[in-house]
């Protein structure tokens, strides 16, 4: 659907307002602590929102969405470190490379249906991690350290962290709009049809292999850029951080919590989950139980609220369905 038509809908502006508030919140009072909390939120929202393209629209579970984040991180950090590329170009190339890779992989493994695809995605994480551990230009298992002066082009470390924050928020915003635009498009309708009944969709003329591969590839682009930003910010990347399955899992929990297949729900879910996690990490009782709590939360959602938060809101306030996507 053309952008102009999207802009006529109230949800477009609700989303824009929310993103603007998000971006500016830490600016007032130069609140660095808030900024650091929000940048993590932005990562969660980016990952969950792109995961949702597969999960909520096409009905395919990707347990390994973290590979996009990690590979994007590696590509970007490597280009900055070994070839002294500027950050912007490195990010863009990382995004494009990972998307293309996902397209190629997608055309292969998306021949697997349903649960088999989900199982294969775990394998992709294993494969990519094994690759990173054995690939010498990426430093093998010890990873890549960036030198201290990488922040100089961005105006020194203090200013660089703000620049990175705004870029991350932009990536988050783009993720939400991508999600929204796809949902309102013919492509999105085709994906929803696949998610409901893949055989029927094909018989109706939806080019299922192509669409699945395309959405898999699309769901790789922005997470790869987010990974690039994230590991550029840490100035360090190693396989166990880059391909940490916990983050994939959390993205899944977030998407389910907010309501799979919705745009706003995933953002709200990420926010709530981050808050909950922050609380659990600081309370001594739960510090070791993070995985346990994620699991329990996911179980409760799957068992009792398969529609997530947005499903709950839609059910109790049906009129919101017309405004919130």
């Amino acid at each position: 659907m053309p952008l102009v038509r999207l802009m006529r809908r109230p949800f477009f502006w609700i989303l824009a307002l929310a993103i603007a508030v998000f971006a500016l919140a830490p600016v007032f009072g130069n609140n660095v602590a808030l900024r650091e909390a929000l940048i993590l939120d932005a990562v969660y929202i980016t990952l969950a929102s792109n995961l949702n393209l597969m999960l909520g629209y096409a009905g395919y579970i990707n347990f390994g969405s973290i590979v996009f984040f990690g590979l994007g991180g590696y590509t970007c950090v490597w280009l900055v470190n070994s070839y002294h590329w500027p950050l912007g170009a490195s990010l863009l190339v990382a995004g494009v490379c990972v998307s293309v890779l996902a397209l190629i992989f997608g055309l292969g493994i998306l021949r697997l249906r349903g649960a088999f695809f989900a199982l294969a995605t775990v394998g992709i994480v294993e494969a990519v991690q094994a690759f990173a551990e054995n690939f010498t230009p990426w430093g093998g298992s010890s990873g890549i350290y960036l030198s201290g002066d990488i922040f100089t082009p961005l105006g020194g470390p203090a200013r660089a962290l703000w620049v990175i924050y705004f870029m991350m928020v932009a990536v988050m915003g783009l993720s939400l709009y991508l999600s929204y635009a796809i949902k309102s498009s013919k492509f999105g309708l085709g994906l929803l049809a696949i998610g409901q009944n893949e055989d029927a969709a094909a018989i109706l003329g939806v080019p299922t292999p192509l669409y699945k591969a395309l959405v898999y590839s699309a769901s790789a682009f922005l997470p790869a850029i987010a990974g690039g930003l994230y590991f550029f910010k840490s100035a360090f990347i190693q396989p166990s951080d880059a391909f940490d399955l916990t983050l994939s899992t959390e993205a899944l929990v977030v998407a389910m919590l907010g309501g799979q297949g919705t745009v706003a729900g995933v953002a709200i879910g990420a926010f709530l989950y981050e808050e909950l996690r922050g609380y659990l990490l600081t309370s001594s009782m739960f510090a070791n139980f993070q995985l346990f709590v994620s699991g329990a939360l996911l179980l409760l959602i799957v068992l009792f609220f398969p529609g997530g938060l947005m499903g709950f809101i839609y059910r109790h306030f049906p009129r919101t369905q017309k405004v919130l996507e």
Binding site: I61, L291, F292, G295, L297, L299, V302
Partner: peptide, 16 residues
């Protein structure tokens, strides 16, 4: 896919 997710979440709890 729902049973995949429900057993997956039990697994998270056990691993945790």
């Amino acid at each position: 896919l729902m049973s995949l997710l429900s057993t997956f979440s039990i697994n998270l709890m056990l691993i945790g």
